[in-house]
């Protein structure tokens, strides 16, 4: 069986990684390449770089950064943030991104998934979904959780799979940032309904939380930011502990 993946997520603003102030042993935690390489050396299975720049200059800087990442890092990486057309995706593919993640733009224009998947393959398309529980139903939000839509999570995830997404990256906005663990029932239900891999995001506060979502929650991968960036645990240490829980990981 394929190993469960651990994926650190790095936020990039105007070409520099943000957060990560307590990262031990690095000269420059703002250097996305150096930080990514350090995670890879610790045993990260993939990396996600999220561009949170607000300016055109920032976007352009991100593209040249992606090129440097591709040249220097020997594990797969996904890039996301601000991808709203097939040209945006093509630009990132051309400089070496292995996958792109799309979120709000896909909700606005679902055929974007079909277009990118048809041209570059499903393996290139990660559909990121931010869901929120409203009156007992899980609905999709966009713009980082600020806008609620009337799309229902399971229907949208299935539609995304049918349109050609290769993976789903699901964040429960009710749990994101709480550090109280993931909604494992939700992830297990989604896993039951889909044939493509699911990456769990948002809510990890401990090793046990991650172990739970990968076992009870049946997620294929866990993405996390804070617990790694603030040096609470290294990727390698997390994976060794997950192995003790009987979870197949690459160590």
């Amino acid at each position: 069986m394929v190993a469960k993946r651990i994926i650190p997520c790095l936020d990039v603003k105007e070409g520099r990684t943000v957060k990560g102030v307590n990262f031990v042993g690095l000269q420059d935690v703002g250097d996305a390449v150096e930080l990514g390489r350090a995670y890879a050396a610790q045993g990260a299975d993939e990396l996600v770089y999220l561009d949170i720049s607000a300016t055109v200059e920032g976007r352009n800087t991100f593209t040249s950064l992606v090129e440097r990442i591709a040249q220097n890092i020997n594990i797969p990486f996904t890039v996301g943030g601000g991808i709203s057309t097939i040209d945006d995706a093509a630009r990132l593919l051309d400089v070496g991104a292995d996958k792109i993640s799309i979120n709000s733009a896909a909700v606005r224009n679902p055929s974007l998934i079909d277009e990118i998947a048809a041209k570059y393959g499903s393996q290139f398309v990660v559909l990121a979904i931010d869901a929120k529980r409203v009156d007992g139903r899980y609905l999709i939000t966009t713009h980082g959780g600020r806008q609620l839509t009337n799309r229902e999570l399971f229907a949208w995830a299935r539609e995304g799979q049918e349109r050609g997404a290769g993976e789903i990256l699901l964040t429960s906005m009710d749990h994101d940032g709480t550090r109280e663990g993931y909604p494992c029932d939700l992830f297990a239900e989604l896993s039951q309904q889909l044939s493509i891999p699911i990456i769990a995001s948002g809510g990890a506060g401990s090793v046990e939380d991650i172990a739970d979502v990968l076992s009870k929650g049946r997620a294929d991968a866990a993405l996390a930011a804070s617990i790694f960036h603030y040096g609470e645990i290294t990727v390698g240490e997390l994976k060794r502990r997950l192995k003790e829980y009987g979870i197949k990981v690459r160590v």
């Binding site: 069986m1 394929v2 190993a3 993946r5 299975d45 499903s122 393996q123 290769g166 993976e167 896993s191 039951q192 044939s195 493509i196 891999p197 049946r218 294929d220 991968a221 690459r250």
Partner: peptide, 17 residues
């Protein structure tokens, strides 16, 4: 073949031994 009971996903994506 994907199999939700045993957790086999398609595509086979990630690290395997």
């Amino acid at each position: 073949e994907a199999d939700s009971t045993s957790g086999v996903k398609v595509p086979h994506m990630g690290w395997n031994s």
